[in-house]
Design a protein around this nucleic acid. Structure first.
Lengths: 224, 224
DNA sequence: TAGATTGTTAATCGATTAACAATC
DNA sequence: TAGATTGTTAATCGATTAACAATC
């Protein structure tokens, strides 16, 4: 290689908008797969989400998958490539803290295992809930948390406690060797930078819906 | 006005990224308000979300609110302006379809009323659930839906039925005079263009979390 | 082969950030 | 007043789309 040649561009960062769209593609591909479809075109996917078909092809190229001219993308192949890219084809162990209604709903949500999450324990503060079975799990006291995290090498903590308790729980799990927090309490949690926090804020969805309702823009974008 | 003067630019479209951030500002402002804070600077808000403070000021200017140099924004004033902008200060009537765990959790979610949603009825398909009280609502059969929508002038339908039933329920409510659908079933629903659909896709959040976990980028963005 | 569809480069568009004047 | 902070214009950066060659 000539020494005055241009440095190979790092370019390893994935466009954040692409990252947002990819999980949606995965969902549609799952449905197409169940319907027995073999191939899908960028045009079809684009139409589904009201984006440009060039956009879809660019997104696909970002994850490094190749289609076939004339036939399109293999449904199974692309779904699997996206799965690998997102890391949902490998298993992550998780615990859930807060055995209320929302917690119970999540435990039974089939998507968890579909996206590589393996729930190993459920915790709650409330003595009345202890040892009750919630979705097949005996609810454990918070005291057991540390030991469980260690013995199962838990990577993700799902927080479904009330708003007021959420930051304290977050601090507690961040002290353990937890790598990521999936927060459903309606508050922004903060954690050390080595812990990834995803705040699943339903109020945001509601607020956006309310705004669209007010404006009543007919062609509302799907990715907002 | 001189007749060769430039046309007033329409420019009425709100940047979609701004729209995404605004509900988060609202949430923080609520918390600051509860803490008794009077003023907040663009710098503080920016720091909170890892964005630029110029960005915050631009977002605020989009909703048409003015701050005070040196002191910043009035917490109450800005929160209220955002509330007006989002339309959450005016009440919208809603029904919920699907009285399972997720439905129950949502009914009791305090955010609903906080964001201007007034739930008036809960429906379910399952005869075993009928007339049971869920969060203070007697579960009604689907047959009653049409009448309830008419008499309460219901604007929003919240769908918390299983994936397999979701599109059928969506079609049914779209036939009524419903203006918006808030869907929690893990599938993309499609409806006529005069009905706004918000698909609240938890699998997307899980997929993004999984990706971040795989990459373990320390400084993960909050708005992804 | 002809036509459909992918993959990629270049052009456009929109969003973020830098710079700085205005204001309390 | 001096300093802090807003508000806005201009510059930069990134994402989308148009154009078109490559390929089955």
């Amino acid at each position: 290689m000539k020494d005055h040649e241009k440095l190979k561009k790092p370019k390893s960062t994935i466009p954040v908008q692409t990252l947002r769209r990819i999980p949606y593609y995965h969902q549609i591909l799952s449905e197409l797969e169940q319907q027995g479809e073999q191939f899908v075109s960028s045009k079809y996917l684009a139409h589904f989400f009201h984006v440009d078909d060039t956009q879809v092809r660019k997104d696909v190229s970002v994850i490094g998958y190749k289609g076939k001219p004339k036939s399109g993308y293999s449904v199974t192949g692309l779904k699997s490539a996206i799965g690998d890219f997102l890391g949902i084809n490998t298993e992550n162990t998780a615990i859930l803290i807060g055995a209320g209604k929302l917690g119970s709903a999540l435990i039974e949500y089939p998507g968890l295992s579909e996206y590589g999450l393996r729930l190993v324990a459920v915790f709650d503060n409330d003595p009345k809930k202890l040892d009750k079975a919630v979705g097949g799990f005996a609810v454990q006291p918070m005291e057991n948390l540390k030991k469980v995290v260690q013995s199962f090498d838990v990577g993700i903590a799902i927080i479904t406690v009330p708003k007021t308790a959420a930051q304290a729980v977050c601090d507690l799990v961040a002290e353990q060797k937890i790598k990521a927090i999936w927060n459903f309490a309606p508050t922004q949690l903060s954690a050390p930078s080595d812990v990834t926090v995803r705040n699943e804020n339903m109020a945001v969805g509601l607020a956006l819906l309310s705004h669209y309702l007010k404006k009543r823009t007919a062609e509302s974008a799907i990715f907002s």
